[in-house]
Amino acid sequence: MRRVIFSGTSEGKMLCRQLSQAGLSAEVCVATEYGKEVMPELRGITVHTGRMTAPEMTEFLRGAQVVIDATHPYAVEVSKNIRAACAQVSCRYIRLLRPKTQAEGAVHVPSAAAAARYLSETEGAVLLTVGSKELACFTAVENYQERLWPRVLPAAKSLEICQQLGFPAAHLILMQGPFSEEMNVALIHASDAKWLVTKDTGEAGGLPAKLAAAKRCGCRVLLIDRPQEDGMTPDAVRDLLLGEKPPRFPLFVDLTDKTCVVVGCGAIGAHRAEVLLRYGARVIVVAPEGEAPAGAQHIRRAFEPQDIRGAFLVTAATDNHALNHEIYELCQREHIFISTADDRTACSFFFPAVRTGNGLSVGLVSDGSDHKKTARTAKKIEAILKEEQE
């Protein structure tokens, strides 16, 4: 079967990795050289670079059986062209939908142009986190050179667009995400922003970190709503292409004095650190917040790539989905066991619910269909182990 994936998003990269791990092949299309650079080298995955005209796309898709549109949620014209090309060659089209994020307290507008009109009725500096393609709309804001601070990719094209539109160099923020809550807070303070303009890019696009930072700083959020569309979740697309996966093999290993890194120290991270300590691991917790359990080393700062060096296993349990995914990809490249707390597809092992007693150790994981079932069953197992002890 010839599979084609139009990517450029973290969901597209993840789907490519899943297909490769399953021994399946696919052709992935990215629009830019930058898109190619951030795509990992994967067995069976061929990368095509460059934008296509409608006729070129139609010709390229001849012979394909299924096309997955995993482009950005706001790339409306691209998705329209892909659907039209699929219809021309009678190929199945599937839109992969990025999950939405609830943005309580945000002001919602339907477009970038509407956002610019709304800002024209407000006062104060504005941190723009909408990318460079629609920046021209915001030149309609009175005194935009003084009020607006665009944050765009550190690419020559992005800088060229900003310069052509007359944005002063002192107001340009050229950075590559993902951005943590702390980084967003720093940029809001640096720009003295009273408004933060963003799109509903979901967790993968760092929206929760932006919302949390704005709330901390008392900065209002202007949210450009996502276009309405039908499609499938990333998990549903994966299951469709891969079929039902076999369950994970319950491998019990000796963790005595092995280095285990836990990134994040909320309720989940602290619990996982405590469990690893019980099994004799040397536990390092990396998190600026929280309290690591007694016996663990607590590095009080944001995660850095070198933190996983020499680790036997890593668990990513931060509240930043993009950061957890970054840690997953780092561990995959270094062949380190990794479990992420918020995405079962980004795990080389599942962190189990553990129950011990009477010389027995039981680890329990679910298939993802019913998370409460794991807790209920673990409670029953705990009761059985206590009965055996008595």
Rank of each mutant, 00 (worst) to 15 (best):
G35S: 05
G35A: 12
G35T: 07
K36S: 14
E37L: 09
E37T: 10
E37K: 06
E37F: 02
V38G: 11
V38P: 05
V38S: 11
V38T: 12
M39T: 08
P40F: 12
P40R: 10
P40S: 09
E41W: 05
L42V: 13
L42H: 00
R43L: 11
R43F: 13
G44Y: 02
I45D: 09
I45E: 10
I45Y: 08
T46Y: 12
T46K: 14
T46L: 13
T46A: 14
V47Q: 07
H48I: 15
H48G: 02
H48S: 12
H48Q: 11
T49I: 09
T49Y: 01
T49L: 00
T49Q: 08
T49A: 01
G50L: 00
G50T: 03
G50M: 00
R51W: 13
R51I: 14
R51H: 14
T53S: 11
T53H: 03
T53I: 04
T53E: 00
A54I: 05
A54H: 13
A54T: 06
A54Q: 14
P55D: 12
E56I: 01
E56N: 06
M57N: 04
M57W: 08
M57S: 02
M57D: 09
T58R: 10
T58E: 15
T58Q: 13
T58P: 04
T58H: 10
T58D: 12
T58W: 09
E59P: 06
E59Y: 12
E59V: 11
F60P: 05
F60K: 07
F60M: 03
F60L: 05
F60E: 04
L61N: 03
R62P: 09
G63H: 06
G63Y: 02
A64N: 08
A64D: 06
Q65K: 03
Q65C: 08
V66S: 13
V66M: 13
V66I: 15
V67A: 00
V67T: 08
V67E: 01
V67N: 03
V67I: 11
I68K: 04
I68L: 08
I68Q: 03
D69K: 07
D69E: 03
D69S: 06
A70L: 02
A70Y: 10
A70F: 08
A70D: 02
A70K: 01
A70R: 01
H72V: 08
H72Y: 12
H72F: 13
H72P: 04
P73Y: 09
Y74V: 04
Y74R: 02
A75D: 15
A75T: 13
V76R: 09
V76P: 02
V76Y: 06
V76D: 13
V76I: 09
V78M: 11
K80N: 11
K80R: 15
N81G: 11
N81W: 07
I82D: 00
I82F: 01
R83D: 10
R83N: 10
R83C: 05
A84G: 12
A84R: 15
A85V: 01
A85M: 07
A85G: 07
C86T: 03
C86L: 01
C86S: 09
C86E: 07
C86N: 08
C86H: 02
C86I: 06
